[in-house]
Structures are given as structure tokens and as C-alpha cells.
């Protein structure tokens, strides 16, 4: 009797897992390949990918790819003040005479590093909280969700301004503040996936066969939440860059001479009406294109991961 029930349960678990694969489509190799093939031909994807690759490479190799590395790092060259774009300075020079291309590349270093740190730490925290809350249910779930509600009740820029002001400006506190603002959305996302799967037969089966809660989370719940997480994280890389630029625009970012896109727009805006549009325009474009590229990439990932989407 005892043995029979167990074997039946094992059989159930097998079919349930198959169901889950059909539902999420995240794990079947053939479906994934087909859907990738569907999105792979999109020019927007290639443009975004190439642009981001160029930005990342330029940021990583900034000291070597530009002849104006010291200016990128902040050394003024006042004789070149506000030079218009030319062969020597393809993106012009800023109000301190620094090469704009070098400045933008150095700015990319901090922008990308910050976005990666914020998003990855938000994902880690969000996943832990979401898995725990969704799996445990009850008062723990309730407490975790009401906490995320509190965070989500405020516009994230507003909350970030508050936190950075309390923590004091600078790179580390900006990362901390933005991560604090960003994790709840991931917690919510993961928790939603977990709750919808928690009562699926294959989970119950796994539990019944003696798989530990951690094992269930790792092997059954997390893989199913991976695709939406990846999509969100990719789009959020762009969103974090935008909000971080907003913070430094209002004076809460790194201080000069460190290159920062938001600070560059702020200090450059007084020269725009006089005709030197590149001082604020170049970092503005850098922010726009980077955020746009991440958004396109995220959307493509989403389409590739969504079996219901018909290209």
C-alpha cells in the first residue's frame, strides 16, 4: 500500500513536470531554439547588441582606446574649452576643454558598473525574498509582500533621492540606494511565479519524494522564474542608468572631476543655448541610446522566451 502510493506519486510528478515545461517553455531545448531563430533576424536586436558591445568594450578599454585618457579621467585642458566636434575631437570638447569622447567613455565605466551592481544585487535579494515568501506562504509571505508594497508605493526616483540624501552622495551610496529601491520588483516577480507553481502537482510530487525545500526552489521554482527575471534585469540595466543619471543631474552623484553622464548634462546645459550643444547633448545621447538598447534587448529576450508570442 505504502509502496504503491509512492510509485503513483512518482508517476504524477513526471507528467506534472512535463506540463510545467509546456507552460513556461523555458526548459525545452527545441522550443527555445525555434523562438530564438524567430527573433534573431531583427535588425533592432543586432543594432542594440552591437551598440552595447561597443559601449562595454569602449568602457573597459577606455584608458587605451582614447588618446585623451587623462582628460577622460578629469584633467582640464582649458585651451581647448568648448571646441566644436572635429577630427581631433570627434564629439567636441567640454567646458574644461576635455575631449568629450574620452569623457563619455569614462562616464560609461561608472554608469555600466553601477547599473550592473544595482541590478545584480537587486536580483539576488529579490530572488531570495520572493522564493522564501512564495514558498513559505502564510505570515512570512504577507510580511514580505507588504514590505515590497511600501517600497513600490513611491516612485523609485523619489525614493532613491531620499535614500541617497540620507546615505550621502557618491558611488557606493548610489548603488546601495538604488538596490534598495529596485529589489522589491524582483521579489514580487519571483514570488508570483512561485505562488502559481507552488500547488502544481509536480511540486507536490517533488515534496512528497522528499526533495528539500531548498532543492525544490533551486531545481523547480527558480528555473521557471529565470526567463522573466532575465528580461526584467536587462530592461532595468537601462532604467537604472537613467535614474542614476537623474540623481547625479540633481547633484547627488559622484563629484567632479569623475566623469558621469548625469553630471555632464548638468554642467553642459548652460552652454546649449549658446550653441555648444555637444557638451550636454553627447552624454544625453549616450544615456538615451544605452537605455534604449537595453530595452530592445530585454524585449527580444522576452519574445524569445514567450511561447505564446507569434512572430
Amino acid at each position: 500500500m505504502d509502496v504503491l502510493r509512492r510509485s503513483g506519486a512518482v508517476g504524477d510528478a513526471g507528467t506534472a513536470a512535463g506540463d510545467a515545461r509546456r507552460v513556461t517553455g523555458a526548459a525545452t531545448g527545441r522550443g527555445r531554439t525555434r523562438r530564438w531563430r524567430r527573433v534573431a533576424g531583427r535588425p533592432a536586436l543586432w543594432l542594440s547588441g552591437l551598440f552595447l558591445a561597443a559601449v562595454v568594450a569602449g568602457a573597459l578599454l577606455a584608458p587605451w582606446v582614447t588618446p585623451y585618457a587623462d582628460e577622460g579621467a578629469g584633467a582640464p585642458n582649458i585651451a581647448h574649452k568648448l571646441l566644436a566636434p572635429s577630427w581631433e575631437h570627434p564629439l567636441g570638447a567640454d567646458e574644461m576643454g576635455r575631449d568629450m569622447l574620452a569623457r563619455v567613455l569614462y562616464g560609461a565605466r561608472s554608469s555600466l558598473a553601477l547599473a550592473l551592481l544595482v541590478v545584480s544585487s537587486s536580483v539576488v535579494v529579490g530572488v531570495i525574498v520572493g522564493l522564501a515568501a512564495g514558498y513559505a506562504g502564510g505570515w512570512a509571505d504577507e510580511a514580505a509582500m507588504r514590505t515590497t508594497d511600501v517600497f513600490l508605493a513611491f516612485p523609485n526616483l523619489l525614493l532613491a533621492i531620499l535614500l541617497v540624501t540620507v546615505l550621502g552622495g557618491g558611488f557606493v551610496s548610489t548603488v546601495l540606494a538604488l538596490a534598495l529601491v529596485w529589489w522589491p520588483i524582483y521579489a514580487l516577480l519571483v514570488r508570483g511565479q512561485v505562488v502559481s507553481l507552488r500547488s502544481q502537482p509536480f511540486i507536490e510530487a517533488a515534496r512528497a519524494t522528499g526533495v528539500t525545500p531548498l532543492g525544490i526552489m533551486r531545481r523547480h521554482l527558480l528555473p521557471n522564474a529565470l526567463t522573466p527575471l532575465l528580461v526584467y534585469a536587462t530592461i532595468d540595466l537601462g532604467a537604472v542608468i537613467l535614474v542614476a543619471a537623474g540623481l547625479s543631474f540633481i547633484g547627488l552623484g559622484p563629484q567632479p572631476p569623475a566623469a558621469d553622464w548625469g553630471v555632464m548634462i548638468y554642467s553642459g546645459r548652460q552652454y546649449v543655448l549658446g550653441g555648444s550643444w555637444w557638451v550636454a547633448g553627447v552624454p544625453g545621447l549616450a544615456i538615451m541610446l544605452t537605455a534604449l538598447a537595453f530595452a530592445v534587448l530585454g524585449d527580444t529576450l522576452r519574445d524569445a522566451g514567450d511561447p505564446r508570442q507569434r512572430g
Partner: peptide
């Protein structure tokens, strides 16, 4: 959800750009 986030992104872009001029 997609459209909401795209809209948000678009609004942010507009905000950043408009701060220039």
C-alpha cells in the same frame, strides 16, 4: 506590463533630453 515599462522608459528619455533644452 511591457507597454507600461516602455512608456516609463520613454518618459525618462524625454525627461533626460528635455533637460538639455
Amino acid at each position: 506590463m511591457k507597454s507600461v515599462r516602455t512608456l516609463f522608459l520613454a518618459l525618462c528619455l524625454v525627461a533626460v533630453l528635455s533637460s538639455c533644452a
